[in-house]
Design a binder for these strands. Structure first.
Lengths: 342, 342
DNA sequence: TTGAAAGCGTTACCAA
DNA sequence: TTGGTAACGCTTTCAA
């Protein structure tokens, strides 16, 4: 392995000078700097990340910790974050928290707080207080923090506005009997769940209904074991076999929307003629399903941009005040075949 | 930040003793070790990754470099690899190479070879020789290496056998006029492409046809700009509008299979009645499409297991001979609605 | 069984 | 403008 000492020796300068030259410090005169750079290139020198990080506390790496990397939405998010990090001269490393608190903790304290200049974290089971402790003071940006009081910079998905637009759209399509799939009705009243993604989306729904002076009974909110495609499909089977009637479905995620579409197809119920369906997220697959899925498409590039911007601001200036800042990603309603304006 | 010195001081031992005790070295008597561990826990000590890695050359981290993290197959692969790494007491960090040689090189030389004990790499544009140079001698396992001569341990997807099974299945379903979507016909003859995934899958197809004494004209191989769902959909539109006839489709990936299904639907062609479709990969989405997609499902857990096993073997024993070893993942044919045995 | 001390490859301070 | 040198936090001989 070729070290900086090797480069310095070969260029006939001290290690200090080589270090400065390599990092383009203006105090080294161009002639010297040029020579060092040339030698470094010839020797194929690369700076040792561990040493750099140990000494300076900076690595140029941003950590992204995400739940369930094998699902479309989180993986598209990871990809967008990774791309945006590159644009800002950072390298993103992505880690899967895999729905285990233990793993979240381990990632946070072993890798993230040690190696990364900052972390973008999608919190699962770990609390804000724990994150605070484990982060070792390194900047953190949360994705959809559900805490009552924000203690970290956070980027939110446009839950309220998106859900509002979704329900409004279903109403505009003539739906009279709308079911919300994948939310817990308790989220509306249970204070501890108040800021959850579910609750925020339900709040948006509520607003849309009340504007139309329509009822929004709790029984129209159908909970599911999880947000998987499979769960959505079975849920549709269940509620139809229970004789439940409905003509519009707002699914909490596109993955669930796809499952609902499939469940309806299993039962021979026509979309959008008998039932209209809208999802949330804007995953790529929704464009190609049969029928294609109308959705609230989160502007992922915008989300990534806002998250990285918040994070790099703290990395570049660690003296930024402690008050947590938040941003909300843009979205747009993408109408496809699963709904029809009448 | 609490360092090992702090722990040593608080426990009344030297830094060396603390280091040994923390790592469970048997030379420290239980009583002392226990005390050190207790103090470390109280102080919430965590070992500094950079320092550990700088000094010992080991980090406990495995790098996974993957192309296009926002597509189902690669992201499922990353998730499986990450999970399997955890089972072997390694933490996986995933990086997106994003289809750029520059980015592949940067990841390899800046992060991977510096920090990771080993890397699982899905090579895109970078050559074996370059990987050799950039890896800094750290163990590497390739995913579907396309090089003529293997220079690294490699895990292959079961291209030949899988494609063979796919075509055999289409034949068993009564297809007389099968098109292969997404492969370059030149791959069969161009030596430089000989080991490409395309070529290996085509070889499997060829074998299946020849066994049935059927023709396999090059014109039945339809190339596409890429392996995206969108490309598959447009390709179907194109070939049908050209008046091309066919009753069976083998798509090089499930993502393309989904696109083909959608393209056929656009044209009012019924699957599986008029055309039968089979994909390759076994992505989750294929189970829920309408119609659901018959596929060659790669056993991802098996692939991950083999890759991690190959890698950890080299990490644990760096003296392993230079000869590259390879393994091939298992697969199974999953029949769904897009094909029908008559 | 434990401790002292020498680095690992950088960076950053201070002096020249 | 450059060079000497002391850290950064850890592991690992070598002695005690």
């Amino acid at each position: 392995m070729v070290t900086m000492s090797d480069v310095a020796k070969a260029a006939g300068v001290s290690r200090a000078t080589a270090s400065y030259a390599l990092r383009g410090d203006p105090r080294i005169i161009p002639k010297t700097a040029e020579r060092v750079l040339k030698v470094a290139k010839e020797l194929q020198y690369t700076t040792n990340l561990s040493a750099k990080s140990l000494r300076s506390g900076k690595s140029g790496i941003i950590g992204v910790a995400i739940f369930e990397l094998d699902k479309p939405y989180p993986s598209e998010m990871a990809a967008a974050l990774s791309k945006e990090a590159s644009h800002n001269d950072f390298q993103a490393i992505i880690q899967q928290t895999a729905n285990s608190k233990e793993s979240e903790i381990s990632i946070l304290q072993k890798v993230t707080s040690q190696l990364c200049d900052g972390t973008i974290f999608s919190p699962g089971k770990v609390t804000s207080e724990e994150i605070q402790e484990l982060s070792g003071g390194k900047p953190i940006v949360l994705l959809d923090d559900t805490a009552r009081k924000l203690s970290f910079d956070t980027v939110f998905t446009p839950c309220e506005d998106g859900a509002y637009a979704a329900v409004k759209h279903l109403l505009a399509c003539g739906c009279k009997d709308i079911l919300i799939i994948g939310a817990n009705p308790l989220a509306l009243t249970d204070a501890s769940k108040y800021r959850s993604v579910s609750a925020r989306r339900l709040a948006g729904c509520k607003k849309a209904f009340s504007e139309e002076a329509m009822e929004f009974p709790e029984s129209n909110i159908i909970d599911t074991p999880d947000w998987s495609t499979l769960a959505a499909r079975s849920t549709i089977h269940d509620i139809v076999s229970q004789g439940r009637h409905f003509d519009g479905l707002f699914c909490m995620t596109d993955s669930m929307g796809l499952g609902a579409l499939r469940g309806l197809k299993d039962l021979g119920i026509s979309v959008p003629n008998e039932v209209q369906v809208i999802g949330f997220d804007g995953i790529n697959e929704g464009e190609f399903s049969v029928p294609s899925l109308t959705t609230i498409e989160v502007d992922m590039a915008d989300l990534a941009k806002k998250a990285i911007q918040l994070l790099t601001a703290r990395i570049d200036d660690p003296t930024t005040p402690d008050t947590a800042v938040s941003a909300t990603a843009n979205f747009r309603l993408v109408q496809r075949e699963s709904t029809k304006i009448r």
